[in-house]
């Protein structure tokens, strides 16, 4: 009986890429690694209270007293549990992943909103990105980028970027028809249309996508730790392997605290930006 050699094709494809572009991937991985390492050193070198202060100010501006108080309390707990360096690692992973997702995702969302055919190509790819079990692409990611934070960011971006694309696309397509007509009737160029009408009106929806992306990247921290990303995920992993329930719980709780702070702050920033 004939069997489609699908798996074989895929591994051959990966081999081919590695053979032909291996040095390119290495160079990319090296540079990206340096950028990530740079951000981490800056945050590690900063005094911990300064970082708490900055986050508290952001919380104050976006949410008010309750959020500020809660954020400070949560961060103090993380510091007290001796999880500060893990906190920095996880924060860096989430921020870099979100940044990459936004930089790639928003333009793709804009293109999808304007091109019917392009959307037909992009949407199924997003389905694959969100549902393909991440271990499947973790191994090739390791082969391309080596161990460490770079493949972790790659895997996180694959999983976490789709909401930015989907919600940018949705936000732009939801701009009321008569407002698009205003842009047209007053003779706007396509660029003016995008910057003066579509993006401002889609912004709350886009920010909801950014918020989702951050939440999804936090759900990847344990998997990211498996390929050497460090952070809370590593604590959870070693908690599991050592049957250390307490350690696992402490790290897990720290993830929840970070998630709540990021979620409330990004939601709050969306609200304040509308006025």
């Amino acid at each position: 009986m004939y069997r489609l050699p699908l798996g074989q094709w895929v591994s051959q494809g990966v081999d081919w890429l590695l053979n032909h572009y291996g040095p390119g991937f290495d160079a990319f991985s090296g540079t990206a690694g340096m950028v990530i390492q740079g951000l981490r050193s800056v945050l590690t070198a900063s005094p911990w209270w300064l970082i708490v202060l900055v986050i508290a100010i952001l919380a104050w501006r976006s949410g008010g007293r309750k959020l500020t108080f809660g954020s400070i309390l949560g961060l103090l707990l993380i510091y007290d549990l001796r999880l500060w360096s893990a906190f920095i690692d996880t924060l860096v992973l989430v921020l870099i992943s979100a940044f990459v997702s936004i930089i790639i995702g928003i333009p793709l969302g804009i293109l999808a909103a304007h091109g019917k055919y392009l959307r037909r190509v992009i949407l199924p790819v997003l389905d694959i990105m969100q549902t393909m079990p991440s271990f499947v692409y973790l191994i090739p990611a390791l082969m391309f980028f080596g161990l460490g934070t770079v493949p972790a960011v790659f895997a996180t971006v694959v999983f976490a970027m789709p909401p930015v694309i989907r919600l940018t696309d949705l936000g732009i397509r939801q701009v009321p028809v008569d407002l698009v007509e205003v842009g047209e009737a007053f003779g706007s160029t396509p660029g003016q249309m995008l910057w003066k009408i579509e993006l401002p009106l889609a912004l709350p929806t886009i920010m909801a996508g950014v918020n989702q992306t951050m939440m999804l990247s936090l759900s990847m921290v344990v998997i990211a730790a498996m390929i050497g990303a460090g952070g809370f995920g590593q604590g959870v992993l070693s908690g599991i392997s050592q049957m250390d329930i307490g350690k696992g719980f402490e790290n897990g709780l720290a993830v929840v605290i970070l998630a709540m702070i990021l979620d409330r702050v990004t939601q709050g920033l969306t609200r304040t930006e509308r006025r």
Binding site: P176, D178, L179, E181, V182, E184, A185, F186, G187, K196, I197, P200, L201
Partner: peptide, 16 residues
């Protein structure tokens, strides 16, 4: 032409 010669006013106001 749209910028200089043709103004338009909309039923549902269409303000940004």
């Amino acid at each position: 032409v749209r910028q200089k010669q043709l103004g338009m006013v909309f039923q549902q106001f269409a303000l940004l």
